[in-house]
C-alpha cells in the first residue's frame, strides 16, 4: 500500500548559543491511509518537533534535512504560502492544551470554523455556521446551538478538548496529528476524548499520528507504535509486538515502569530507568541510550557505534545492537 505520509531521514537542528542542538535525528517512518501511528517518547525526544516539521511550522532558523512526502509530494523546502493550503485542510493538528490553544476573545464557534473560513472563503456565514454546529454535534458537545456562541472560558476542560478536535477536523483532513490530546485531562474525560477521536477517524477515514507519553493511551488507540528517544527512532512495530515483545532496552524500561495494580506488593517501589536523558547538544557517539542501559556492552560497542535499525520481524524493528539477544543478555547480567 502506498503511504500517505512518508518521512525519510528527517533531521532537525536548532542553532543555540551553546552549539547546534539536534532535536530530531535521522528519523524515518511512514503513515498509511486509515491507520493510527502512536509516537511515544519522553519530553524532549523530538515528538512535537517532528509534527511541527510536517506542518512546516518550525521557526525559520531551524535546519531541516531529509524528506517529508505527503501523497508523494515533497514538503521540505516549500514556501509558507504553499504549506498554508495544506494546513488545516489536508493535514491538521489537535493541540495539547485546549485552553491555551483557543483564543479567549473569540467565540468557540468562530474558532472551530476558522479552517473552513480560511480555505473556503466563498462559503456563506450561514453555511459555515451550519457546518460548525454539525462539528460540535459530532464531537459530542451538548446543546451545540448555545455552545457555538460561547467563549472558551465557559467550556469545561473536556469540552474544550472536544472543541479543539472539532476545529482540527473541520475540513476532514487526510492526516490528523494529535499532540498529546489527553494530557491535560483526567482519566474519565481522557477515555471520552479518545473515544471521540476514534469515532471521527472511522467516520472520515483519516490517518492519525498520535503523539503521547502515555503508553496506556497508545495501547488502546494505535495500530503501530514508534518509540523515540533523544530525537532518534528507537523501536517501531505493531502495538502487540512492541508491548509484548519489546526489542529495545528503552522500551523495556518504559513498560517496566508502568504502575501495575495486579502485581503490587507492600513496600515495593516503582521500577524506573536510572539516569537522565542525554543533552541534545552532546549526544553520545553510539547509541544515545547507552549511559542508562542495563544491557550495554562493556566492550564499548554501544557507546561508540551508532546502531542500525534491526528487523525483528517484517513489521517490527529496533535500533539496538543486541535487539535479537536481549533476553539472553538479561539473564547473563
Amino acid at each position: 500500500m502506498e503511504p500517505l505520509l512518508e518521512v525519510r531521514n528527517l533531521t532537525v537542528r536548532f542553532p543555540t548559543d551553546d552549539g547546534l542542538l539536534t532535536a530530531v535525528d535521522d528519523l524515518s517512518f511512514e503513515l498509511f491511509p486509515g491507520e493510527t501511528l502512536g509516537i511515544v517518547g519522553e519530553s524532549g525526544s523530538g515528538k512535537s518537533v517532528t509534527s511541527m516539521a510536517i506542518l512546516g511550522l518550525l521557526p525559520k532558523y531551524a535546519r531541516i534535512q531529509g524528506s517529508i512526502r505527503f501523497r508523494g509530494e515533497e514538503l521540505v523546502g516549500r514556501v509558507d504560502q504553499e504549506m498554508r493550503n495544506l494546513r488545516g485542510r489536508h493535514i491538521a493538528m489537535i493541540f495539547q492544551d485546549a485552553l491555551a490553544s483557543l483564543n479567549p476573545v473569540h467565540r468557540v464557534g468562530a474558532q472551530i470554523t476558522e479552517a473552513i473560513a480560511v480555505h473556503a472563503p466563498e462559503l456563506s456565514d450561514t453555511a459555515v455556521r451550519t457546518r460548525g454546529l454539525e462539528l460540535l454535534n459530532l464531537v459530542g458537545i451538548p446543546n451545540p446551538v448555545d455552545r457555538y456562541d460561547q467563549y472558551p472560558h465557559e467550556y469545561s476542560g473536556g469540552m474544550r478538548q472536544r472543541a479543539m478536535i472539532a476545529m482540527s477536523i473541520a475540513n476532514e483532513p487526510e492526516v490528523l496529528i494529535a499532540d498529546e490530546p489527553t494530557t491535560a485531562l483526567d482519566v474519565t474525560i481522557q477515555a471520552q476524548v479518545m473515544e471521540v477521536i476514534a469515532r471521527i477517524q472511522q467516520r472520515t477515514n483519516s490517518s492519525m499520528m498520535l503523539i503521547t507519553h502515555d503508553l496506556g493511551v497508545v495501547a488502546g488507540a494505535a495500530d503501530r507504535i514508534l518509540v523515540m528517544y533523544a530525537g532518534r527512532q528507537v523501536e517501531t512495530g505493531l502495538v502487540d509486538e512492541v508491548f509484548y515483545r519489546p526489542a529495545h532496552p528503552y522500551t523495556r524500561g518504559l513498560l517496566a515502569s508502568l504502575p501495575r495494580l495486579d502485581r503490587r506488593r507492600e513496600g515495593q517501589r516503582l521500577e524506573r530507568i536510572a539516569g537522565q536523558p542525554p543533552s541534545l547538544l552532546h549526544l553520545p557517539a553510539g547509541c544515545a541510550f547507552t549511559p542508562r542501559c542495563r544491557y550495554a556492552d562493556a566492550s564499548g560497542m554501544c557507546g561508540n557505534r551508532r546502531p542500525e535499525l534491526h528487523e525483528v520481524s517484517a513489521t517490527h524493528s529496533s535500533s539496538c545492537h543486541f535487539a535479537d539477544s536481549l533476553d539472553s543478555r538479561a539473564d547473563a547480567s
Binding site: L55, L57, R84, N85, L86, R87, G88, R89, A92, M93, F95, Q96, D97, A100, S101, L102, N103, P104, Q111, E114, A115, V118, H119, M164, M167, S168, A170
Partner: peptide, 11 residues
C-alpha cells in the same frame, strides 16, 4: 498556542 493553532489551521 492559539496563534500556533491558527497557523496550523492555515491562517
Amino acid at each position: 498556542e492559539f496563534v500556533e493553532a491558527a497557523r496550523a489551521a492555515g491562517a
